[in-house]
């Protein structure tokens, strides 16, 4: 699992370093998945049942990372949306989606 996380991070980083805004967004999204998987991996995998007291289990899976992740997923959604709209706005205003050309003036 850890290797998968590492791979996701690798691909995400590569995408973020490219010049196209779209790819950057995709990259952040992939890294987001990577982080989620990383956190839940930290909690230990596949030990015990789902954290529902209704089901009789001896042990439960670690519930804290799950709660963390639940919020993380939703926030991730919001930030992705914001990022998308920002890049979209940048594109419509400036007419390019290339970060190289989005650069400001020399002395800024």
């Amino acid at each position: 699992m850890c290797i998968v996380v590492g791979l996701l991070f690798m691909i995400g980083t590569y995408l973020i370093l490219t010049k196209t805004l779209l790819r950057i967004i995709l990259g952040t999204s992939i890294i987001g998945h990577g982080v989620n998987l990383l956190i839940i991996t930290m909690g230990g995998l596949k030990k015990g049942g789902p954290p529902l007291l209704g089901i009789e289990n001896v042990t439960y899976a670690d519930s804290l990372p799950q709660a963390l992740l639940l919020t993380a997923i939703v926030i991730n959604f919001a930030t992705t949306a914001l990022f998308l709209v920002l890049s979209y706005r940048a594109y419509t205003v400036l007419g390019t989606d290339d970060t190289e050309q989005l650069r400001g003036k020399e002395d800024e």
């Binding site: 789902p50 529902l52 007291l53 209704g54 639940l70 919020t71 939703v74």
Partner: peptide
């Protein structure tokens, strides 16, 4: 409250 679900999921 007792089973999978809740505000986030329901809302989404």
């Amino acid at each position: 409250h007792h089973y999978p679900g809740g505000g986030f999921i329901g809302g989404l």
